[in-house]
Design a protein around this nucleic acid. Structure first.
Lengths: 144, 144
DNA sequence: ACAAAAATTAGAATAATTCTTGATCGCAGG
DNA sequence: CCTGCGATCAAGAATTATTCTAATTTTTGT
């Protein structure tokens, strides 16, 4: 099922809103959110921690983990896992998968062709309730 | 009707072969392989360790990890990850995904409907080479 | 402003996995 | 049959992402 287009996420370059999706904003959560939306390269918690020090020099790694968990649990960002590598975080809420390019090590969002619904192509027992889907591909993108 | 298996895997109840897919068999590797093929419930390394002690009381956990890695790297079994939970191992080599039933905590293999090819329903740049696909669903299976 | 609740911090603790080191095995050649 | 040699195994230490703990700070509601 495709999530309805989000109630337009707050502009990361504007003022900090009081809350997002029911999650009370704090300086730290707002900066983590801004950073994720601004740099959509699926950073790890530690990468967020390093990058965010520019703006919040005293933030702790534990707080970065706390913020990421809060944002994730309120459906504001998505946690993405590749094998047993450190979790990465993604502000793209639309149903999509991830392509891990072996050559460059980069991660790219991938979407279904229009009109395709994953549940329709899988052989599942009638009545199955799907709450979450994760698709990960590995390979090489064509040299651009 | 069962789809033909690519490389007819050795019968786990027969004699230990000298090798499987180029991997030299040892007592430990063979028992790990037998256990996975015999109990297709996607055990973790630790669960394999516990269960295998019946037959190899002196095996170490490190050896179980070594065996699982060797079997995985030779394409004899598949490593499956759910979020950051301990890796699980699966002897089903056919292209398939995994469904994690929240109610029972069990994991079930899922396959595409006949004739469906995942690459055909994804919006990928022409020329993309896919070497590996992982599909994970979470939800609830109908009460049977 | 004050009490209560929530968030942050720093560092300790946890847990899956990997690494290190030394012992052991299996086998090929003498 | 011995001897070496490379691969494997065992035991425990080390690593590392993440979570927990306890104390402090910030925010909220009255």
């Amino acid at each position: 099922m495709v999530a309805p287009i989000q109630n337009s996420k707050p502009d990361p370059s504007g003022e900090m809103p009081a809350e997002i999706s029911g999650l009370r904003m704090t300086k730290q959560r707002w900066e983590v959110y801004r950073l994720l939306v601004g740099q959509r390269d699926h950073p790890t918690a530690n990468e967020v921690f390093i990058r965010i020090k520019d703006r919040l020099p005293n933030i702790s790694l534990a707080t970065v983990y706390n913020c990421l968990e809060a944002l994730t649990q309120h459906g504001i960002v998505r946690q993405v896992n590749f094998d047993r590598e450190p979790s990465r975080f993604c502000p793209n809420l639309e149903e999509h998968g991830h392509f891990h390019d072996k050559k460059s090590g980069t991660i790219h969002d991938i979407v279904f062709k229009p009109g395709v619904n994953l549940a329709d192509v899988l052989d599942l027992p009638a009545g199955t309730v799907i709450t979450d889907i994760e698709i990960t591909l590995r390979g090489e993108l064509p040299t651009s």
